[in-house]
Write a protein that binds this DNA or RNA. Structure first.
Lengths: 195, 195
DNA sequence: ACCAGAATCGCACGACCGTACGAGGGTGTC
DNA sequence: GACACCCTCGTACGGTCGTGCGATTCTGGT
């Protein structure tokens, strides 16, 4: 990989970490340059607007999420194992504070009222995630572990709710019972769609 | 009410509206002054730091949420009616974009990784909300509509999840089915705790 | 009508913002 | 060794940020 591309990757990594704390909107070229110990202009040259930087960070976050959560889940056995894998990976990514995966979800609330390229991209990505989760749910139908008349979109929706609720309790309230509750909610959800 | 207090109230109202779009962190004294058509320094004098302004906005958001959601729910009949009232009011406040109520929830994700007075206050308020929701759930036990062995905290947690998931689908994705799904999730939740 | 105090203003400050541009340094190819 | 090209830098611009202060205007009680 060329030197420039390497630097760019490193910058984006740092951007994700910072944005994970202060939000994508709170990202600052100056602060980022400080952290990477390079000049503002040198850093800026890699992106050519702040929005491009934010989009790059968002994309990295999405990739991280896909690598850490979605892909491993999709390579698990169809049906319940796959559903469980999706949930467990997602939970782990939130719990261990892997910045990428978390940012991807966190940015959603930040930009839900700010029209623009970021919001559009975020909406697209989340729609994809919902579709994937629904598909995972349906994979359970084909192996007879999930009710044939299941509402897969509803399941995806509800699963997301469980995760969001976990994020909040775990990160804002630092509630030690957060994980237990998330698991309980997940099991209830699963019980509701099982054959 | 003295003139000054009146102005302050108006400023805080505007602050809540703006923060609802750009986040509490995105609040700006200059922009606020522009919207209220007064000088930056004149506006600033009412608070004496930006953080105080943010805290004031957060408090107003909390009050709005309590007025619009919590109090009406608590004055409904114990048991299922009260639980339903809590859910419906909450849903309505999110759906109609009442800035106060929404901001209160939205700010939670914004500051979950930024230590400080805002985060602390937010955590306290959310804990209170959880406690209230749990209490509302328990009110159903006393009238025999909710299972005696219900985990009220879990219920509160799950209810929050349903709301968060609704926020996302409604605001980011503009999904027309969001409300229907939220209602379905709520009914499933309720069915799980009924006697 | 007057006066005290509250409310608001104008102006200034240093810091940082995002962005632009040209100069210089490094590296790889002929 | 010369050349081209990619990175990175310094410097600069106009703007906005949060905050402080003294001067001015407004308001309410006497």
């Amino acid at each position: 990989m060329a030197k420039g591309a390497q630097t760019r990757e490193a910058i984006v990594d740092t951007a994700v970490e910072v944005a994970f704390r202060v939000g994508l909107g709170g990202l600052t070229i100056g602060e980022l340059a400080r952290q990477r110990q390079m000049s503002k202009s040198g850093l800026f040259a890699h992106f050519r607007s702040k929005e491009a930087l934010q989009l790059a960070a968002l994309e990295r976050a999405r990739e991280t999420f896909v690598d850490l959560v979605v892909r491993p889940a999709l390579s698990a056995q169809r049906g319940e194992p796959r559903i469980r894998e999706l949930f467990e990976r997602w939970l782990a990514c939130a719990r261990d504070g892997s910045p990428g995966g978390c940012l991807f979800v966190k940015a959603a609330t930040e930009f839900d009222s700010q029209p623009g390229a970021l919001r559009d991209r975020l909406a697209q990505d989340h729609q994809d995630l919902f579709d994937t989760a629904a598909q995972v749910c349906r994979s359970g139908v084909s192996v007879g572990q999930v009710r044939r008349d299941v509402d897969a979109e509803q399941f995806a929706h509800d699963l997301y709710g469980v995760m969001l609720s976990f994020y909040l309790a775990y990160r804002l309230l630092a509630d030690p019972a957060a994980e237990t509750r998330a698991r309980a909610a997940f099991e209830a959800l699963l019980a509701g769609v099982r054959t």
